[in-house]
Design a protein around this nucleic acid. Sequence first.
RNA 1: GCCCCCGUAGCUCAGCGGAUUAGAGCGCUUGUCUUCGGAACAAGAGGUCGCAAGUUCAAAUCUUGCCGGGGGUACCA
Length: 554
Amino acid sequence: MTELREALKSAVKELYGVEVEPELTRPEEQFGDYSTNVAMQLGAKLGKPPRQIAEALANKLQDAEMIAKTEVAGAGFINFFLSDKALLDGLLRQPAKVYDGQTVVVEYSDPNPFKVLHVGHLYTSIVGDAIANQFEAAGAKVARVNFGGDVGLHVAKTMWAVLQKLGGESPEKLQDIEPGKHSEWLTDCYVEGNIAYEQGADAKAQIVELNKRIYQITEQQDKSSALAQIYWTTRQWSYDYFTDFYKRIGSHFDRFYPESEAVEPGLKAVRENIGKVFEESEGAVVFKGEVHNMHTRVFINSEGLPTYETKDVGLILKKWQDYHFDRSIIITGNDIYEYMQVVLKAIEQIAPELAQKTTHIIHGLVKPTGGVKMSSRLGNIIRAEDVLAAANEANKQANSQENFDVALGAVKYAFLKNRIGADFIFDPTESVSLRGNSGPYLQYAYVRARSILQKSSGNYQLPTTNYQLEPDERSLARKIGEFAEVIEQATNDLLPSHICTYLYELAQNFNRFYEKNRILGDERETVRLKLVEAYAKVLKNGLQLLNIPVPEKM
RNA sequence: GCCCCCGUAGCUCAGCGGAUUAGAGCGCUUGUCUUCGGAACAAGAGGUCGCAAGUUCAAAUCUUGCCGGGGGUACCA
């Protein structure tokens, strides 16, 4: 509520000659629509009793057009009750475009080619989509990017098993693999290769050797040798599998950065800074973290190959080159927190402004319960698709309907409603319930609101003068009007969960209204329809920001 | 050992410096309505906000220590 904030600022200036940036919060409904604690802050500064200051300010603002009344409470809070007109005017306010004209790069999901997508990837994808959408709503030009290891030990492991299965470097034999089974086949190869690496000394040596050869293939852009043909073909299979999956969950990326592309810029930056930022130790190039109270990490290993650290350095430089971002967000699991701290510290010494513009968001673990299968064959991993399948199945059971939009909405909402950072438990049955705090509940809420509007005459214009809201209408209008602030807060805190909490509270508020008040056919139909319309719009808007499907019918 | 994250009702989680009574969902108890597609609604039981100090006019929220759980700690990512 910028007008109120401005009015408050100038009142403080006029009365006390001080500049303040007053804090406005949403108190409990009984205490008003907005509340401020400026009087307490000023009290300390001016050496006057806070309540006295509060009284003076409240008095001064009493007559503003948007204010119905003011109250002073407690130690010196000022509570503002908005006029009905101000409330209705604010109904469809949109979040402020604080990122207007800025470019924000959001990196998330980051699956490795040649491996399966697991729950963790699903989680970052969902969180990343929501955060990217929020920046867009705040006016930013957003680039959604995805980083993945198309080179490295896991690739060599997979490739080793691929060669075993093909009986040598025979690319033509890849045609025998059924197209629908490509990703599954590769996943099996990875598992086999991994076992071989850990168990057999010969295999291990071969895999290490293969690793170097694959680096060379990407470095020299070799597309013709037999191994290169196998590599590029299977790599493409993997990317196809990702693309299909993202399409299914409604994610899209502007750019995939394969690790192989980050190698060169990364190596260059690290090598140029040996002696300055990095140092040689035991045949490797390392970053000494101890001085910064961090871990020491290897950037170039004793084989002369870049580790993930160097590729991450290269990636940040590449992102900068491609986008000249004002802000860069990286979303990963929290197991990588300290690792990323080291990378960012190293970047800070190479290109300080890039580190300063970068924010690393970490999330916890998803722990699925009841009905989500774990693949023991793949090493007790929970695949992303297994989570979706479980939700779909739960939806069939509970709501006797098959609707992937509902299952997907259920999973997304269940993941997003938790504050990012801590681990949480995912229960498919609960996620899909039409009662309680769930995605389908909100989807259904929207469908029913639309249904009311469709049955109506379509006339929901407000009278232009002398309208007054009844208490229940007022309460609903107040809640609807919070939307923009909630979005702003969520973007500021990088917490989509705020949006979930709000949407659910909004739907509950509507329920209470709907239970007691007739809409269609009532003498107050037009005003009420106006509220329903705004409510439906806000629900849709909010769900879309979360990248949750918004069905018109269920 | 050192470092990071987490610890709020029986369960799953919000709240992350402000309001007499710390919230929601599920589960439990009682009541209401022949429902604009119950997405029900109303009332109730249930909490030493892990423990202990400190900072503050004000602490679940900030600081420190401890306890419990998870993660990281040189050539994996």
